[in-house]
């Protein structure tokens, strides 16, 4: 089956895969060839691909997944390959987000909180994916 991962800024991935594992609003799902046609919402987290026994990891944020006759399309706001993640930068972003989240409720607006929360989730997802980098059998 084919997989396209598309973000507003560019196409991150395009090609054949054997298995896809991804986090949806209802929990993690795996997609194998000939999956029933599906439309679902994704939550920030890890995306695992398998092709010919090799695994590849990616971090993605909110988005949608569509399965349509063995063609899988993932629309997401942001996606990054495990090997492209800059751990120091992400740590910094997580720290910043954490500081905002720790602030007293009265000193922070709802939007600020929501933005920081989204940034925090994304950072956590990226760090988790980045950990796979070392034990990755690909390349």
């Amino acid at each position: 089956m084919t997989l396209d991962i598309v973000t507003p800024e560019k196409i991150i991935f395009q090609g054949d895969v054997d298995e896809i594992y991804v986090n949806t609003a209802d929990g993690e799902i795996g997609i194998l060839p000939h999956h029933i046609n599906l439309f679902t919402k994704l939550i920030p987290g890890e995306l695992k691909l398998k092709l010919l026994g090799k695994e590849q990891y990616m971090a993605i944020t909110d988005g949608f997944l569509e399965v349509n006759n063995n063609k899988v399309t993932i629309l997401t706001d942001y996606a990054i390959h495990a090997e492209d993640i800059e751990v120091e930068k992400v740590m910094e972003a997580r720290k910043k987000a954490e500081e905002i989240l720790k602030k007293k409720e009265s000193r922070i607006t709802k939007q600020e909180f929501a933005l920081a929360e989204a940034a925090f989730k994304r950072a956590v997802a990226e760090l988790k994916v980045a950990n796979h980098k070392h034990k990755r059998p690909m390349h």
């Binding site: 949806t24 609003a25 209802d26 799902i29 029933i36 046609n37 599906l38 439309f39 679902t40 919402k41 949608f64 569509e66 349509n68």
Partner: peptide, 11 residues
């Protein structure tokens, strides 16, 4: 689409 998760109204 045959399947929606969770459902169309919330997506």
């Amino acid at each position: 689409f045959q399947l929606f998760e969770p459902d169309l109204e919330s997506i």
